[in-house]
Simulated assay, not measured.
Amino acid sequence: MTAPLLTTRLLTPRLVLDQPGEADIPDVLDACQDAETRAWVPLPLPYTRESAEFFVRSYCPHGLASHRYTVWALHLSTGGRMLGALEVRRDERAGSASLGCWSGPWARGRGYMREALVAVTRHALDPHGLGFDRLNWEYVPGNESSRRLAEAAGFTFAEGIRTVVELHGERREARVGTLRRDDVGL
Score class of each variant (00 low, 15 high):
residue 13 P to E: 05
residue 153 A to P: 01
residue 72 W to V: 00
residue 96 S to M: 13
residue 44 P to W: 06
residue 73 A to K: 09
residue 131 G to V: 04
residue 155 F to P: 05
residue 114 R to V: 01
residue 172 R to W: 01
residue 17 L to S: 06
residue 107 A to M: 07
residue 99 L to H: 12
residue 84 G to V: 06
residue 140 V to E: 08
residue 69 Y to S: 14
residue 47 Y to C: 05
residue 50 E to M: 01
residue 123 H to F: 07
residue 83 L to F: 00
residue 165 V to M: 08
residue 13 P to H: 10
residue 151 E to D: 03
residue 84 G to S: 03
residue 138 E to L: 11
residue 91 D to I: 02
residue 34 D to M: 10
residue 44 P to S: 00
residue 63 G to D: 14
residue 11 L to V: 07
residue 9 R to A: 13
residue 56 V to A: 11
residue 20 P to T: 04
residue 34 D to C: 03
residue 74 L to A: 14
residue 39 A to S: 15
residue 61 P to F: 13
residue 1 M to F: 14
residue 176 V to M: 12
residue 171 R to M: 02
residue 110 R to F: 04
residue 181 R to L: 02
residue 150 A to V: 06
residue 160 G to D: 10
residue 117 L to Q: 05
residue 13 P to W: 08
residue 50 E to R: 12
residue 104 G to Y: 14
residue 144 E to C: 14
residue 74 L to Q: 15
residue 162 R to P: 02
residue 119 A to V: 09
residue 81 R to Q: 09
residue 115 E to M: 03
residue 167 L to A: 11
residue 42 P to K: 09
residue 94 A to F: 08
residue 178 T to L: 03
residue 149 L to Y: 09
residue 45 L to K: 11
residue 6 L to T: 14
residue 80 G to N: 08
residue 52 A to W: 05
residue 178 T to G: 05
residue 122 R to A: 14
residue 165 V to L: 09
residue 34 D to V: 03
residue 129 G to Y: 11
residue 101 C to R: 05
residue 129 G to Q: 11
residue 50 E to S: 13
residue 168 H to Q: 12
residue 94 A to H: 09
residue 170 E to H: 12
residue 52 A to Q: 06
residue 45 L to D: 13
